[in-house]
């Protein structure tokens, strides 16, 4: 899964292929039913739903982009801004709250000025705070990194450790053009 592809480098071809393969509405009613899922495909491909993708979806399904944006801004799962290098789903369900996830939410806000859907200033991490439940309460408080790795029993310290790892990874990747890391 690609994350954070810049708007200029969005390749719409994979999305168009998926839409043509699996999203073939018989009528307008079907088109409307398929919008949310089509947007999920786009988010899966690009890490967020870029404007170009909404236009492609609108064109394919024969609906207006306004309607699509109406849905994207209502449903919490969708990101409409380009995310950072990594995406974290931080579970803030009741079990995680009892386990101390509120401390993490506050920490993110105070130290990184990050609320749900926002990215740290250095572009390392986008956090989505999941108000529902990730369903892995045995590991509470838990977060899911880049949609497959789970980090369980999180504390502020272990979260900072994770951030350090992520930052050093990204530094290693961009060591050659170090001018860009301010």
């Amino acid at each position: 899964m690609a994350h954070g592809a810049p708007a200029s480098e969005i390749d719409l071809q994979p999305l168009r292929t998926i839409l043509e393969d699996r999203y073939n509405p018989e009528n307008y009613q079907d088109s409307l039913e398929l919008i949310v899922q089509a947007c999920q495909e786009a988010q899966h491909l690009y890490g967020y739903v870029p404007k170009a993708a909404t236009e492609a979806i609108a064109e394919h399904l024969g609906v207006s982009t306004n309607r699509i944006f109406g849905l994207l801004t209502f449903y919490a799962d969708f990101l409409t801004d380009e995310p950072g290098e990594h995406t974290m789903l931080l579970c803030h369900g009741t079990a995680c709250y009892v386990g101390g996830s509120q401390k993490l939410v506050d920490h993110l806000d105070l130290r990184y000025d990050v609320t749900s859907g926002k990215t740290t200033r250095d572009g390392t991490l986008t956090v989505q705070i999941v108000n529902g439940c990730l369903g892995v309460c045995d590991l509470a408080p838990v977060a899911q990194l880049d949609h497959h790795d789970y980090c369980g029993h999180l504390t502020v310290e272990s979260f900072e450790g994770l951030m350090d790892t992520l930052r050093s990874e990204s530094k290693a990747a961009t060591v050659e053009d170090s001018d860009e890391t301010d």
């Binding site: 409307l32 039913e33 949310v36 947007c39 999920q40 849905l71 449903y75």
Partner: peptide, 27 residues
């Protein structure tokens, strides 16, 4: 049988909101 998926809004568990969500509207 059709499978439809939601977009992470708790309110869509409410009956009428769920139906609007299926119909491609804000739930």
């Amino acid at each position: 049988m059709r499978v439809r998926s939601g977009g992470g809004a708790y309110i869509c568990g409410e009956g009428s909101a769920l139906m609007y969500a299926i119909m491609g509207e804000r739930g």
